[in-house]
Nucleic acid binder design. Structure first.
Lengths: 283, 283
DNA sequence: TAAAAAATGTCAAAAAATTACATTTTTCTT
DNA sequence: AAGAAAAATGTAATTTTTTGACATTTTTTA
């Protein structure tokens, strides 16, 4: 677990002197890992044993061990903490916080993905007669994106924003059709109904949603993503990104399964777009 | 740079005893970071100063510093790099690679964002009479997502997929309107034209695109994102994610600028959705 | 094969971290 | 509000760890 996060969380439980140490470290963790216990004690204006006790309170074996943990938290690419945006953050601060917490969420999402289900779903998709992507609200744009990706594969793909169109589309499903439903909470009533309709018409229903949700229960396969959402913002943020990345994974699996010739096909699709673009200068 | 890779690379240049140390470390790096120089020396069957010299050969300040570097290389998620998906990757492998390279791209994107422009654009958006989001192809879903976010702010927001609707919408722009155009390459002809139309009608045009592109040149403000795209896949992947994250940043900046009361408003919007959802059980 | 250079080890000094204990501060009880 | 108990903090000594100086061994080269 990220020790910077841990320091922030436990801050309330620290004593006065320990708080001083915590602040010095949080203010400049990069310096902290390159300091000796004496230097850090001086910077925090406390004694050396206090620093040592601070380290042990964080369940490390001592100061050197603490530095090791800190170094890992600071390692390149290790996203910091799920840092919450604060009322008074400067543009610089909230920009970095959002990027960082998005990266952190992706890491969590990555660990929650069940690769076996991914594999199974890729199987299904490659064999599908028709693939539908549906989502509502924030998840609609994810479905929209999936359309854009899978459309390039020259497979019959369906995407509707309109809920009635979605229902009608599912009514016409048949064996061999795959319906992918996207919802972070998995509690949107209309989407759960759509899952039911699709299943009644023999389609295979894949849910990109959280486990144990009503939607998950109606699906043939569930690709569950456990993403911590910063509810203070009242907006879906990290969940969408995780869903999109999962779509990327599915699309990639799809192309790999189809093999080399298929990828040449993709290149042709991309080349077709060239006419609509300005040429890139070769400086 | 990853020190484990460095050890592997420099292996040839090491002396006999240093090689012994290298092998012990490579065989079990996790143990190495928790050992003292004495323990490691014994394990490698060399003297302590030899271990120390080994560390310095790798451009570290000494043994403790070396352990810090090693700890960082071992940190969760660090084998970062832009790992390319390979023909024969297993589902497990390509899933992890895609998540990792997406995170890596976000890190690159984060560093390329100009915070001053972000701040300026947030300014503009909060004062806009009408905000439009347009994108084509893969960027359409990003615009779609932006619609979903900004719609909650109770600001007039416009989004069209249809290129003619986009043009007409821009023809009707006036002073105080902001048009946000999204394009990874910035070379899509129709989008560049839309930028021109919008500007002719006194709208402020913000581009989320790559710097120095034809689109960038037509914009009043450019939020440039430099994202390395894995062109082998012939699909936009990381670029979208970076664009979406930037949208999140803008949306967050917007709510922060509007202050506390405004956020209560957002909560109300979210609560309105409750009726359309299944209640969450309280276990 | 001998001399030079490089590598390695021994041992002592220096630096860093930790422990034991004394002192101070805070908290709780009456 | 005073005093006792508990918690927190600091001082100083001790231990551990790392590093440096120098001697010895090994390797290289002429």
């Amino acid at each position: 677990m990220n020790i910077l996060e841990k320091i922030t969380q436990n801050k309330a439980a620290f004593s006065k002197s320990e708080k001083k140490v915590a602040e010095v470290i949080l203010a400049n963790p990069q310096t902290a890992i390159h300091s000796s216990i004496a230097t850090l004690a001086k910077m925090s204006d406390v004694s050396e044993p206090t620093v040592n006790r601070f380290c042990r309170r964080l369940d490390t074996k001592g100061f050197p061990d603490f530095k090791l943990h800190l170094a890992q938290s600071l390692a390149n690419g290790t996203p910091y903490v799920n840092r919450h945006v604060d009322e008074n953050d400067s543009p610089d601060e909230y920009t970095n916080k959002i990027f960082e917490s998005t990266m952190a969420s992706l890491e969590v999402a990555r660990q929650s993905v069940d690769v076996n289900v991914v594999n199974r779903v890729v199987d299904l998709l490659t064999q599908a007669q028709k693939i539908s992507f549906f989502g509502l609200g924030a998840s609609a744009s994810v479905a929209h994106d999936a359309l854009n990706k899978f459309f390039r594969f020259n497979v019959p793909v369906v995407y509707f924003e309109d809920i009635l169109m979605q229902r009608m589309s599912c009514m016409n499903c048949s064996d061999g059709d795959v319906v992918v439903l996207i919802s972070h909470t998995g509690r949107t009533k209309s989407l759960v109904e759509i899952a039911q309709i699709a299943r009644m018409n023999d389609a295979t229903v894949v849910g990109i949603t959280s486990a144990d949700s009503p939607l998950a229960q109606e699906c043939s396969y569930v690709l569950s993503l456990e993403v911590p959402e910063d509810t203070d913002m009242y907006m879906p943020m990290a969940s969408r990104i995780a869903q999109l990345t999962l779509i990327d994974v599915l699309a990639t699996g799809f192309t790999l399964r189809r093999g080399n010739k298929f990828r040449e096909n993709l290149k042709r699709v991309k080349d077709t777009l060239r006419g609509s673009r300005f040429e890139k200068r070769n400086d």
